[in-house]
Write a protein that binds this DNA or RNA. Structure first.
Lengths: 141, 141
DNA sequence: CTAAGTGCAAAATGTTTGCATACTT
DNA sequence: AAGTATGCAAACATTTTGCACTTAG
């Protein structure tokens, strides 16, 4: 369990700027902390993995980046949320294929109704960011 | 990533029997692998943790037990599914409160429509057993 | 100058695995 | 006898942390 010292960056550091610029350049793509580390390493820029984890945490805190936990024994998945996406009323849902592991993004009004329904009928405020639908994709079923 | 050697137990071992009996005695309760290990240790019965993990995996495979991944850096959560629960035509959905950790069971026709919708419109066959809705329960929001 | 961030290496965590042994069928 | 399961300890993978050092404000 991580110590919740609610880190929200206050300084504009070089590393933070580099990371943010990179994330902004890959909207909708999802990546792991290790992916980011490798990416910069390949480009001759070394950013410590702790910095990556810490900045990622800040971004998630700030809502700039979403974090998905697909299954316990794989690394967490991150995804940059563009300001447009942020502004959109459309919510993005995720479906994970249990067989091939594919992660599918869905934007669907009908699914958004689930949210309203859960709130109205079950007093539960759904967090679509965290929720992943498991099942089988069309190729696998 | 775990090696998917689709283990499904074929032998009735003592450990498996002990574990199953225990799980059956705590329907609806959720526990971690470590909880199980500790429980038996306290009762003077030592079952290796690998056995616990392996049996848990089998039970999950067989649909006797559900596994929930709450967040990457906490242990996975398991829950025994009673035969009655299993036999119900109603599908049981789970909502997990991100704050207090409460796991809420829901039986709801409207939610079942999600399933039909995902299949018809998105070619995705939802597995309600594996899927957990994350959000905030009424007490926490 | 002070508070905050960085990077390294080490620790912590949760889970999986190799292997010799023991149990089921 | 053959095929599985067990339990230990070691290996693993991911993430977090302690600390000395650097950087931003």
């Amino acid at each position: 369990m991580k110590t919740n010292t609610s880190i929200r960056s206050k300084y504009k550091t070089k590393q933070r700027a580099i990371l943010l610029e990179y994330f902004e350049s890959v909207p909708g793509v999802h990546f792991t902390a290790a992916d980011v580390y490798e990416y910069f390493k390949l480009h001759g820029i070394t950013i410590g993995q702790s910095t990556i984890y810490r900045q990622l945490e800040s971004f998630v805190d700030e809502g700039i980046i979403n974090k998905y936990i697909i299954d316990g024994s794989s690394p967490a998945c991150f995804e940059y949320i563009s300001p447009e996406q942020h502004a959109e009323t459309e919510i993005c849902f995720h479906c994970k294929c249990e067989k091939c592991g594919r992660l599918i993004h869905l934007h669907c009004d009908e699914l958004e109704e689930i949210q309203a329904h859960l709130l109205a009928e079950h007093n539960f405020r759904l967090n679509p960011m965290r929720t992943v639908f498991y099942g089988l994709c069309e190729d696998c079923m």
